[in-house]
Design a protein around this nucleic acid. Structure first.
Length: 253
DNA sequence: AACATTGACAACCGCCGTATT
DNA sequence: TAATACGGCGGTTGTCAATGT
């Protein structure tokens, strides 16, 4: 049997308990008003001072992903989609860095878009590619427009070769190393400066190999020809973009 | 009409790096 | 130097509407 005091205590506890789940319009209003009046500060204080029963982290996420006034709304434009695909091929799952190149877009938004749309599209394309040509296997890491055989204006560009051509699905490890010739990034990214065309960097016949995930299988690639993405500066990558992505007909911010 | 499935989006969780004490 | 708090990030899960059966 619970006493009245105990009931009250329980009530208070639940009142003090931080809310979770979807934000109500009232909460949005509170956070928005507070941020407009006070600007960004310690998120723990924001939550408290705005009168929200939310943790600071939750407030931060809500502001960054939804309430921020400079957010762009609506579907990704074809240009944005191409840029996302391109940047992902360079940066992997570094969504915040990708988002930094797309004004008004959030890392969460891009991540969701990638996981729900592009990834599936890539797998579909890869699947149809492999079923048509069993001598080649494609990675999901590159799409290029202007191909008449492509799906929705995209077609796969091979980045890695693989001995297995049985299964269509590909898993890209975030630490997936890119084929490299020492630090020659242009060569590694398949950039041919003579004609701006992409080409497939060949895997060397080397004894030293490293493991790469492909269709849930481990595939060996040559370590000598690899460099960690961590060694790359974004500026370098964006410099590559200007060479390797002639299809981007808009400037990066 | 009812239920199941799918897709898109929102939000949480856990980990990590950094600053502060 | 260790402990703590905080912000940021990527992975994952939850929610809900649209669509299919």
């Amino acid at each position: 049997m619970m006493s009245k005091d105990n009931d009250e205590e329980k009530n208070n506890k639940s009142k003090n308990k931080l809310r979770k789940g979807l934000w109500s319009p009232e909460e949005d209003e509170k956070l928005m008003r507070y941020m407009m009046n006070n600007g960004q500060g310690c998120w723990g204080e924001v939550a408290k001072n705005a009168g929200l029963q939310r943790c600071g982290k939750s407030c931060r996420l809500r502001w960054i992903n939804y309430l921020r006034p400079d957010l762009k709304r609506g579907a990704f434009s074809p240009q944005e989609q191409q840029l996302i695909i391109h940047l992902h091929s360079l940066l992997g799952n570094r969504w915040s860095q990708i988002a930094a190149q797309l004004p008004g877009r959030t890392d969460n938004e891009i991540k969701n878009f990638w996981n729900s749309t592009i990834k599936k599209r890539c797998i579909t394309i890869t699947s149809s590619s492999t079923s048509q040509n069993t001598s080649e296997s494609y990675s999901s890491s590159w799409l290029e427009p202007h191909d008449h055989n492509s799906m929705e204006g995209f077609t796969m560009m091979p980045m890695f070769s693989c001995s297995s051509s049985q299964s269509p699905s590909i898993i890209i490890d975030e630490h997936l190393p890119m084929p490299m010739e020492n630090n020659n990034m242009h060569a590694a990214m398949g950039i041919n400066n003579n004609n701006n065309n992409m080409f497939v960097p060949p895997l060397l016949e080397s004894a030293t190999t490293s493991n790469v995930y492909f269709d849930n299988k481990v595939v060996n690639v040559e370590e000598d020809s690899l460099i960690s993405m961590e060694d790359w500066e974004l500026e370098d990558l964006m410099m590559i973009k200007s060479v390797s992505s002639p299809f981007l007909d808009f400037p990066l911010s």
